[in-house]
Amino acid sequence: MNKRGSHGEVAHVEGEMEVEKYVYPPGTLGERVAEALLEGKLLGIKCGNDLLVPARPYCPDYGRGELVEVQGPWTVESYTIIYKDMRGERLKEPQVIALLKPEGAQGGLIHYLKAEKVFVGLKARPVFKPREERRGVLSDILYFIPVE
């Protein structure tokens, strides 16, 4: 949409930049996180008494920390409803994206949430793809569902 400027209409030019495909390896820590995902586990890092999620290579105090499995349950901290995908195409049905935080942890994950009734404070757990379809990435989790 063109807008009015001080000398009349302001034009814009649309284009598309050429971008090559990239391959991003997970790195030394990411590999362990990825392998855990294949097993249907989510890892965090234990730094003293704090549990940081997702896992990262170092603690805030530059200490090593220790990778641990996140047990959950996860709590919905915040959520939003999306109607379009990242390319602007309308979704078949709206989806809920939630910020989920595991119990006693700092940080959290942003992921799909499937629930009849969505509210802040809802307790949820991840649902993984079947083992053979997992690739060690966050989309190995299909979505989160409420804990019964």
Binding site: H12, E14, E16, K21, V23, E31, V33, R87, G136
Partner: peptide, 18 residues
């Protein structure tokens, strides 16, 4: 390798001429 991400971004833009 597990956890490898392959992706080809689409870099569409709308540049305002000013």
């Amino acid at each position: 390798m597990a956890g490898v991400i392959e992706y080809k971004p689409t870099a569409k833009y709308a540049y305002s001429a000013g």
